[in-house]
Write a protein that binds this DNA or RNA. Structure first.
Lengths: 225, 225
DNA sequence: TGGACAAGATTCGTATACAATCCGGAGGCC
DNA sequence: GGCCTCCGGATTGTATACGAATCTTGTCCA
């Protein structure tokens, strides 16, 4: 394959997608030389990409130790979903008011892709797409600043799911997204807001946030690392 | 003076404060060699710091052109204040519920410092402190994730003020912050939320967001650069 | 057998070198 | 006189080099 010119943004993006799709589990060491080798760039650009991901809380940068895929604590998990509950319902309301046929179509295509991925057994990709669905909704609300924040929260949610999700089978059988599109199509802002709110609550309550994975046993560490 | 060891985080922080205090106006070119010279570090660490600031939207990184202090558009200005209005009132409510005597004292000390700076004629510092006051409130709410988002919005607000503020004299004579502390001290969450909401609206409406500085005349550009 | 220590190997942090790109002005042409 | 072109200087983008910190592993001793 032809060697493509790649910058730090592309490196960060590819790593972010891999993390989001659970191909890089929390705690994974991201060796600079290794990553550079894979993408055909020097450590300089790899480091820039890793720093970008660190700012998004997707990786942990430990001085003189290297970069690791982040492992959100229980506390952080709660915070992320609190933040989402604060911001996303209002955003969904705003999106419902602004959505035209083109936007609705795009959302439906998005869900279509998600279903297709699920059918192929590519759970990781399906999870990724079900996350970015929220990004699309935020984009429709036409508030770039908040959309960016939501995108970060969605990414972090993916890490939280990797750590604290219990019943992965029931992944996205829920038709919450379909219902939301319906409300948006009807321009029913109240309903859209309510649906988003309950959808997030639903996600949150299906996590097992009792305690453990925050301080993983060093033994477990060794086995998984 | 002893040469202190400084990393990219410190560089970013010092530049951020300078921007926040309006010592580096929007559009200012941040030459890598020059900044490195000032802090006694190589371009490598300067670049890392600049990238961090770019992620916070405090500087604009233009490929092959360099780093410039950001010039938020009118649209961006609106978005930032919309986001703040969405997030900060709820945060103030939460802070009011959690604030104990220690927190109240810290806030009062903060305001004290702001008044002192104003008395010394250091308007930039006063502006900086009046901004970070909001960060302190967010910290009391004990929601790190949202607090970080607010901190970014506050920084960007400082740039917006630099570009679109009209009556700078009336800077912070308003006693909105004092009133907020009062409500928090009484544990009056409703009042704290309402005060924060009106305070932000007040700020927003005192901006002149009619149009211009978004697409600055190239002539003006040349004069200011 | 188990733990503590030390030397080697690995990996990160920072500085520097070199190539690519952009800006500005001199000169020429219309 | 105005505009275009081209070249020199300056600045950024990327790779590499080297010192510093950390991790590994093998050995010694209790």
């Amino acid at each position: 394959m032809a060697r493509q010119v790649i910058g730090s943004a592309e490196v960060a993006e590819k790593l972010a997608v891999a993390i989001h799709e659970h191909r890089l589990p929390p705690g994974t060491k991201l060796n600079e030389d290794e990553v550079g080798e894979i993408f055909g760039v020097s450590r300089t650009v790899v480091r820039a990409g890793l720093q970008q991901l660190a700012h998004q809380h997707l990786v942990d940068l430990k001085r003189n130790r290297g970069a690791f895929v982040a492992k959100p604590s229980v506390r952080e998990a709660r915070e992320v979903f609190e933040a989402r509950s604060l911001v996303e319902p209002t955003t969904a309301r705003s999106a419902a008011r602004r959505a035209g046929p083109a936007e609705i179509a795009r959302l439906r295509a998005h869900i279509e892709a998600e279903h297709a991925a699920l059918a192929e057994g590519d759970d990781g990709r399906a999870l990724y797409l079900s996350g970015t669905f929220h990004n699309e909704v935020a984009r429709i609300a036409n508030q770039e600043t908040i959309a960016e924040f939501i995108a970060q929260l969605v990414s972090r949610s993916s890490l939280i799911i990797a750590l604290y999700w219990e019943r992965r089978a029931a992944l996205c059988e829920s038709h919450a997204h379909d219902a939301l599109i319906g409300a948006m199509e009807r321009g029913d802002a109240d309903e859209a807001e309510a649906l988003m709110k309950s959808h997030l609550l639903d996600l949150y309550t299906s996590l097992d946030l009792r305690d453990a994975p925050a301080q993983p046993k060093t033994l477990k560490e060794a086995l998984s690392g």
